[in-house]
C-alpha cells in the first residue's frame, strides 16, 4: 500500500511551492571553479549559486565532484581557478578559518569530530571561550553546549563523555550544533542523513525547515535523491566534475533528476550546464 504512495510521489512534480526570492544578489556565487588532483579534473569549470533562505540540493554519483566543489567553499581545498562571491563581494577563502569568517559552516559526511574529547570541546574547537586569564572556560562552554543541544536534541545528557561514546544520531547533532552555534549564514551539509535512522532523519528535516526560516542558505549534498528531493527548493546535478544542469525542484520530477544524474540528460524544466548531454 505504501508502494502506491511512493509511486505518486516519485512521478509527481516537486510538491512544495517555491517561495525563494531570487531577484537580489545571491548569498553565495561560485563562478567557473576548477580543481585538479594529479591530472584528474575533479571539478571542471563549475558554477553554482545559493540565495538566502534557500535549500539547494547538490546531487550526483560518488566521484561526481560535488563534495570537492563544496570543500572549496568551506576552505578545505584550494581551487585552481574560478571565483567565489559572498553577498556580491569577492571572497578570498584559503582555509577553513577564512570560510567560517564569512559565516560558512560545514557539516561533513564524516562529521569531523575529535572523538576523544567531549561534546562541548568539539562544539568550540578552534573557537574556545576563554576566561579573562587566558585559560579555557570549560564551564561556560559546557553551559552554552547544554543550551544549543537542548534545542536540537533535548534528550542529550552525555556532556562529560568523549563523543566516540555517543550514538550516530547524537554525534550528528553535535556536528550540527557546532555548525549553527556561531550564527552561520551559509550551511553546507554533506550527506547529512546517511548514517541516521528514520526518526533522526525526520529531526534533521525539521531542523532544515527551521533554519530556512532564519534566512540561512543551505547546500545539501547527497548521492541519493530520495534523501533531499522533498527538502530542496532547487536541485543542481553534477557529473564527471561538471554541472549537468539546475532546476527549481517544483519544475522537475524525481525521474527527470535521476536522468540528469545517471545520463547527464537535461529535462525541459531545467537550465543546462556545461556538463549536459549534447543532442
Amino acid at each position: 500500500m505504501s508502494a502506491t504512495m511512493e509511486d505518486i510521489r516519485d512521478h509527481g512534480r516537486g510538491h512544495h511551492h517555491d517561495t525563494v526570492d531570487r531577484s537580489g544578489t545571491p548569498l553565495v556565487d561560485m563562478r567557473d571553479i576548477s580543481i585538479a588532483f594529479g591530472g584528474i579534473h575533479a571539478v571542471d569549470h563549475a558554477s553554482i549559486d545559493l540565495y538566502s533562505g534557500e535549500v539547494v540540493a547538490l546531487l550526483g554519483h560518488n566521484g561526481a565532484g560535488k563534495s570537492t566543489l563544496i570543500k572549496i567553499l568551506s576552505g578545505a581545498y584550494k581551487r585552481d581557478s574560478g571565483e567565489i562571491f559572498v553577498r556580491g563581494e569577492k571572497a578570498s577563502i584559503g582555509n577553513p578559518r577564512d570560510a567560517k569568517a564569512y559565516g560558512i559552516e560545514t557539516i561533513y559526511q564524516t562529521l569531523a569530530l575529535a572523538d576523544n574529547v567531549d561534546a562541548a570541546a568539539n562544539l568550540f574547537l578552534g573557537r574556545e571561550i576563554m576566561t579573562p586569564w587566558g585559560t579555557l572556560d570549560d564551564g561556560a562552554m559546557e553551559a552554552e553546549a547544554r543550551k544549543v543541544m537542548g534545542r536540537l536534541n533535548p534528550n542529550f545528557r552525555r556532556f562529560k563523555e568523549p563523543v566516540k561514546a555517543l550514538s550516530g544520531g547524537q554525534r550528528q547533532s553535535v556536528a550540527i550544533a557546532r555548525a549553527i552555534l556561531f550564527n552561520a549564514k551559509i550551511l553546507i551539509m554533506d550527506e547529512p542523513t546517511a548514517a541516521l535512522g528514520p526518526q533522526e532523519t525526520a529531526q534533521v528535516a525539521d531542523l532544515i525547515k527551521e533554519l530556512k526560516k532564519e534566512d540561512i542558505g543551505i547546500f545539501l549534498i547527497s548521492h541519493d535523491i530520495h534523501d533531499v528531493f522533498d527538502l530542496s527548493d532547487r536541485v543542481v546535478v553534477m557529473k564527471n566534475g561538471q554541472v549537468v544542469g539546475s532546476a527549481r525542484t517544483e519544475d522537475v520530477t524525481k525521474d527527470e533528476v535521476l536522468g540528469m544524474i545517471i545520463l547527464g540528460k537535461c529535462p525541459p524544466g531545467a537550465t543546462p550546464g556545461p556538463g549536459a548531454m549534447k543532442e
Binding site: Y108, A114, D115
Partner: peptide, 15 residues
C-alpha cells in the same frame, strides 16, 4: 588532544 583524536577534524576546525 583534538589533533590526536582526529587530525583532519582539527584541520577543518581551523586549527
Amino acid at each position: 588532544f583534538a589533533i590526536g583524536g582526529n587530525p583532519e577534524a582539527a584541520e577543518l576546525a581551523g586549527i
